[in-house]
């Protein structure tokens, strides 16, 4: 299937500073793509270039097969953008700004669609309020409504839940899921890795202007995530016997907890052997559990390796 967005050899320089370095990236139609990276990595620059707000230095970008420089009307009309900041009109109402956005992106007035969008983000009862009277979370939702007003095929959400409380964040996740179900491709940047873990089908990690990884989320977590087995010992031990050195176990300070890190991709995890070796040296345990490293831990590991 043809990707809905294709970025090839993209570079952006501000004077001597190279903000983006030879970016190649494809976004599949209908997916939720999580774009992760530390502050200043180039996420927003990349989004702004795709949307036409910032000029590229070199490279090509196509949206639904159209070049975004040569056929900017076709590409931009397919894209909706919710920026990171909260740039909202002050004296207008949510309804009016949505109607404005729809017209600006070349769509005829459609009150029913505006109502649907405002209702879906719980803003219908605020439709005639001045935007300056709304809370930060509501203003962000107004921005999302504006971005959806022209029925885009691709939606960029740059830090969509920043400043939202837990309940609103959950609502927003539901909105993003329902957008995907309606066929909209969503590109999401977020500092909340939990958000990407929850929502994204694929994730891309960008650091120092370079894409260092693009991978399906579940595969990434399986391939790069490490699992650990924690054993709660019946009796405290002062040190581990040398016969267990090969397992590289971590012993807690109180001597009551042993942690074993293992790789699920290997043919043998070593768990069975460890348990029998523990029995051989008479170390007993009364409980055990396993856990897997989160996307956040994988992300931090990737970025620190790339720094």
């Amino acid at each position: 299937m043809q990707p809905i967005i294709s970025v090839s050899g993209l570079n952006k320089a501000y004077g001597d500073f190279q903000a983006l370095k030879n970016i190649d990236l494809e976004i599949n139609r209908g997916e939720i793509f999580g774009l992760l990276g530390p502050n200043g990595a180039g996420k927003t620059t990349l989004i702004n270039i795709i949307c036409g707000i910032v000029k590229k230095s070199s490279g090509t970008i196509t949206v639904d097969g159209f070049d975004n420089a040569e056929n900017f009307r076709a590409t931009r009309s397919r894209i909706g953008l919710v920026p990171q900041e909260l740039p909202t009109e002050t004296f207008e109402t949510p309804y009016d700004v949505c109607r404005f956005s729809r017209g600006l992106f070349g769509k005829r007035d459609n009150p029913a669609h505006i109502e649907k969008v405002l209702r879906s983000l719980s803003l219908w009862d605020k439709k005639d309020n001045k935007i300056r009277t709304l809370s930060g979370g509501m203003k962000r939702r107004v921005l999302i409504c504006k971005a959806l007003a022209h029925e885009p095929e691709v939606l960029f959400l740059d830090e969509p839940t920043a400043g939202m409380d837990v309940e609103l964040r959950q609502d927003m996740w539901n909105v993003v899921q329902s957008l995907r179900e309606s066929g909209v491709t969503v590109i999401l940047t977020t500092h909340y890795i939990e958000e990407a873990e929850q929502l994204a089908d694929r994730v891309g990690v960008i650091n120092h202007g370079e894409v260092i990884l693009v991978q399906e989320k579940t595969r990434l977590m399986k391939e790069m995530g490490k699992k650990q087995l924690v054993l709660h010992l019946s009796d405290s031990i002062a040190a581990l016997p040398s016969s267990l050195d090969d397992y590289h176990l971590d012993l807690s300070d109180d001597g009551l907890e042993l942690t074993y890190h293992y790789d699920t991709k290997r043919d043998r995890t070593g768990i069975t052997a460890l348990l029998s070796d523990l029995q051989a040296v008479d170390i007993r345990f009364n409980d055990l559990h396993t856990s897997q490293s989160s996307l956040e831990e994988i992300f931090v590991g990737l970025v620190s390796k790339n720094t």
Binding site: I53, T75, R76, S77, P87, L104
Partner: peptide, 13 residues
Amino acid sequence: FTGTIFELLSAPV
């Protein structure tokens, strides 16, 4: 001043 110009710059105009 408010930053809302992003919309104009990203619109098909």
